[in-house]
Every structure is written in C-alpha cells, then in structure tokens.
Design a protein around this nucleic acid. Structure first.
Lengths: 340, 340
DNA sequence: TTGTAAGCGTTATCAC
DNA sequence: GTGATAACGCTTACAA
C-alpha cells in the first residue's frame, strides 16, 4: 500500500480556503497582533483543516538565515560530548533555536562535509569540536557563519573558544596522587599530537617537578588512542615493568583509558587501589559506575556547551561582539580507585 | 573586533563575474557535462574567487525537498542509540544524503518540536525511536514525510519498523542462566510500561515455564528506569532477600542496570559470578569494559540503523513501496559475569 | 552549448 | 486591518 503524499498546503492555499489574502495569512504567522481575532480564527481553522506546515526553506530563503544551531561533535559515541550537547541544547531552547547534531567521528572529511552542508543551509551558528583546531578550514567557515570552538583552544585568538584548563587538570590529578603518598606514577595517554593530552601531561610534570621527585619516576605510557582497548594494553605494559620500578598509581588522559586499565588490572588479579591507584579524566557517568568507582577529573560539560552556545548566539546577533576565550577550571572527584 | 560578514555570493554574482548567464552557472552545479570545459573552468574559478556557497534553502524550495535524513534519538547519551545512528550514517553516506541527529531526551514535547521542525524543512525522511510508539502524532507526520520507527514496534502495521526480537532476547538470556545451573533468578527491569521491557520479561518467563521451574523462583525486581542508579538499588533489594530464597543470578533489562547491579554487588563484598551471575542487555561497549566483563544480549545495532535508513529511502523514492516490519534476532555474548 | 524566464513559498513593503 | 506585489536564490523547461 503506497501512501498518498500530496504536496502540502501553502500560505496561498490557506488564504484561498480562509477567503483572505496571502499577506494576511503570513501576518497571522508572524505578527498575529496585526490581525483581527475573527479573521485570525478563520485562518487558523483553515490551516488546521489543510494540515498546513510552514515551509522553512522558503522562510529562510526570504529572511536570509535559519533559526538553527548545529554542533559538530568529534565523537557522538563518547558520553562526554553528548553531555556537552545537552548543555548546548539548553541554551538553544532558551532562545527558541533548533539544534542539529552532526558527528564527524574524528574524520576530517566527514567534518568538512558537515560544515559544507551547514553553510549551505545558512544556519545561524556552528559549534564544533574540531578534528584539528588549527585547521584553516575553520577560518573559511567562520567568514560566513558564526563559529565557536568547543573543548579545544587555538593558538591565535581569532575565534571564540570554550575550553577547560587541561594543564590544571593534569596538575590536580598528580597532586592528588602525591597526597596519597605515591612516588612512582604512570601517565597513560596519547597520541601526544592531541593538544589536550600534552597539556594534561605537562600539568602532571609540573606538579611532579614541584614535588622535587626524580623526573623518571613519572613514567610516560603512550597510547595510540583514547580508548578502552588501549587502556588494557597500557595495563599489560605496566605489569611488564619490574616490580621495584613499577608505578603504584596511574593517571590516565581520559576515563576510557582508565576503565580499560582498571579492567585489565582487576582481571589479572591485582587490586585497585591497593596494587594500583587510578585517576581518570572526564568523569563520565561510567566512571562512577565502575566496579571500583573511579577517581576522575571532572570538567563542567554542560556549562561548556551552554557557554559556547551563548557565545555563538552573541556572535550572530550582536554587532559589537568580540571573540572570547573562556576557560573553565576542572575539579577532582575522589572515589575508591585512589582511596587509601 | 567584529567581523565583516557580507552577504554571500549568489549564482547571479558568479554568472556576472564569469561573464556567463545564470543558467550556465546552475548547469555547472547540476549537470556539469552539459557545459564546455572552458566555460566550466571559468565559472569554477569565479565561484572560488567569490567564495560561493550554494544556498540550500533556495535549492530545496525549488525542488520541493531536501537531501537530508534525520534521526530523532530517544537518548543521545545512551551508547546504544549512537551506535544505531552510526548505522544510519553509513546508509545515508552511501546515498549521499546528509544526516541530522536530534535528541528527544525521552521528552514527548521535545520530540514533537523536533518533528515539527523537520517537517518544516521538507526533509526526505525521518527515522525515530519514539517516546511512545503508539502516538498518533507519528501518523500525522508520516502523512507528509516518510518515517520509519527504529527499535520499537507498533500494534498496527501502518509503518515500516525495524526492531529486535525482545521476547527471544529474554528467552536466550534465561536459557543461558539455566544452562549454568541457576534455579533462582531475578529479572531486573522497568518500568513495565515500556514494551521492550515486558517483552524481555515475557521471554524470560516463557523459558522459565518450559524448564518446569516454580514460577515464584523467577523473581521480578522492578526498576523505576533503565539506569545505573536503579541497578544499584536493585542490588540492595537483592541483598535484602533471605539467603535461602535469594536468586543466584540476575537478568537485567539493559546494560546500565546490569552495570549498576555489578557495582553494588562487588562493592558490598559479594563476588560475580560466584555469588551472583549477571546478564545484561544491549552489549554496549562498557559491558565488555566492566571489571567483570558482562555477559549480555547483543542487538545488531548498526544493522538496525542501516536497515531503517534503507527503508526510509525506499519509502521516499519508490512509488510501489510497501511497509515492512523487520525483526532482527539478538544473540548472547557470554563473558565472565556468568562464567562457572 | 548557452541564455531566458517562470516559479517554488515565504516575508515585508506599501497602498488602500 | 487587509490586500497586492516584489524579492529571496535556485532549478529547469524551452528557446536561441
């Protein structure tokens, strides 16, 4: 059975049905106050009867832009980014903008395609956690569409950016471990080409230096990617280190790594935190849900999104807008994985 | 410093710059073969110089629809749905359609808003995991826009639906536990108003009946929602049951519950699977990543999405389209949480 | 191969 | 308070 999908009614059809002019119909849509209650009722009835649905393409063609925000996510499967998206959604709702989510899945060409489509739609603003924050593609896009970078920073201050102080995050993670008496610690993370990973590592090293500990006792274990599987691999590497030189704690560049490391540690018969204390990063929901609840560095995810959305709205609406670099400060959430 | 965001160039501007007519510019966009190599080059140069970006609103106004699919997700934070979205993305890519993700966050009014916006955009097809699959709102939408229901079924066969056989899933979960010698089992899930939860429960009960076990030894523990927190609560309830009547295994209606239950069990000093075997449902990535890797019922998530996308594309393009109800069969992935 | 012109559905300006 | 009408940028017959 195939469906009868006839062309949907236009303002013109509604006007005819209601016995008014097309301009009046448009008025009830956009300035209902300008039309008398009785004709308004008549028009509204006609709309309902005909199942009128306003054509957004025509509207946005006419007005030159569309009341829509989009967030190009780096990885829709990572709960961190869906939380950010939630925050954006809140701000978008408040301004009655719709929000589209796009997933670049960490692929530059997917990202480029999405950006192209979004520009073609003349949407009001783009939020993006880019594959490469230094890419000049972003400059091209921003020339036409307000764009703010989320959870990444840029060397030049030519964009609004909203990020979290990763250096500080690395520092507080290590300070927490120092407070618990650890003097041999592993930093698990990579690839180091990711700015955030290096920032967290730098923060960790700085804290280490300030504690006057031998640099070599902060062991770098590089991961290929920030995934659970790599966390397991890191666990094996850690286990391969001779007992006397083996770290008693690990600071992982994100929670997925930490979860993988936790699993590998426990299933190979070692205990957390007794044999190995673990600190993660991001504080995703599953961090608290782990068998040994994970100490983690929490980033204000929703606020990140909300602030970014507010900035992009400002950039699109306010002629005197100036770019801002907003930095949030992460906090440490201590749980069982580092308890003593 | 505010940005100079002048109106972007139109086909007309490009035509003037290239010294050709507007129709020719459109031809290089849509039927490049019809235009000679030399003028094409000239036009393309003009486009590049002017930074031309095609106006999708104008295009889709003219052609009557937009080459876009949308997936209205029930919960963007649940990895299950992002995997489904991945599958949809694959199919959309293959047809060169763009995909927008919308998140209803389980709120009917958010869902309605998204559906309204999508219809206004005259997009080609909608995929949705609805808050309420029986809602008549879906009928209204489907009258204008091809729509397929994902991961839910409907009593009437008036839609294409793609779902997984939850009854079978419940059955194999319990059969697995029976095979491992359990004769007192808890079913953890709820609210029972969710069709899938009841189907899984029904499947479980059927398997139980067929094993000729006393009905009361399949204990129902109802949860308020399918969340980690509720899983922990279930664990406490379970622990409160007198030893001799206490189930030795639990089948949870999803992995979040199972993860919560696993955590509560382990942190309260009982062991998995020795004291309590656990089976989850969905096989999200974090199931395998748990400290005790979780046995779970796996649904073919990506295939779910891909098939749904193919159906909606068929519905939008094929005049002889007929609605289909596709059902996938889940499989059990055995891991340590039920090992003996 | 290229140009001309109509029309998609809406908004907004201007008369009435 | 209401009605004609032009314009937004594009695609697509059709004419040259």
């Amino acid at each position: 059975m195939s469906i009868d999908r006839r062309r949907t009614a236009s303002v013109k059809d509604v006007a005819t049905a209601a016995g008014v002019s097309l301009g009046t119909v448009s008025n009830v849509l956009n300035r209902p106050d300008r039309v008398s209650a009785v004709t308004r009722a008549r028009v509204e009835k006609a709309m309902a009867d005909l199942g009128f649905v306003r054509n957004e393409s025509a509207r946005s063609l006419r007005v030159g832009q569309s009341d829509t925000l989009a967030y190009v996510m780096l990885d829709a499967g990572n709960p961190f980014f869906t939380d950010v998206a939630h925050g954006i959604e809140r701000a978008a709702d408040a301004e009655d903008l719709s929000l589209f989510l796009c997933n670049s899945a960490n692929a530059a060409e997917r990202e480029a395609k999405h950006l192209e489509h979004l520009q073609q739609r003349r949407i009001q603003g783009i939020l993006i956690t880019p594959v490469d924050p230094e890419s000049t593609l972003l400059n091209d896009v921003a020339r036409r569409t307000p764009l703010v970078i989320v959870d990444r920073t840029r060397k030049a201050e030519d964009f609004c950016t909203v990020a979290v102080d990763d250096h500080h995050g690395g520092r507080i993670a290590v300070e927490h471990l120092l407070d618990h008496g650890h003097t041999k610690v592993a930093f698990v993370g990579g690839p180091l080409s990711i700015g955030q990973v290096t920032d967290r590592y730098e923060g960790a090293r700085r804290a280490w230096q300030e504690a006057d500990l031998p640099p070599d006792d902060l062991v770098l274990i590089t991961a290929e990617s920030l995934t659970v599987a790599e966390g397991r691999t890191a666990g094996e590497q850690l286990a391969g280190i001779p007992q006397r030189r083996r770290p008693t704690a690990a600071f992982c560049a994100n929670d997925l790594l930490a979860l993988g490391l936790l699993q590998q540690t426990i299933t190979s018969g070692r205990r957390v935190p007794d044999d190995l204390a673990i600190v993660g990063y991001d504080d995703i929901e599953f961090a608290a849900a782990a068998a040994v609840p994970l100490t983690s560095v929490r980033q204000p995810r929703q606020e990140l999104g909300t602030t970014a959305a507010e900035l992009v709205i400002d950039e699109s609406a306010n002629p005197t807008h100036t770019h801002q670099q907003v930095t949030f400060t992460p906090t440490l959430v201590a749980r069982a994985s580092t308890a003593r």
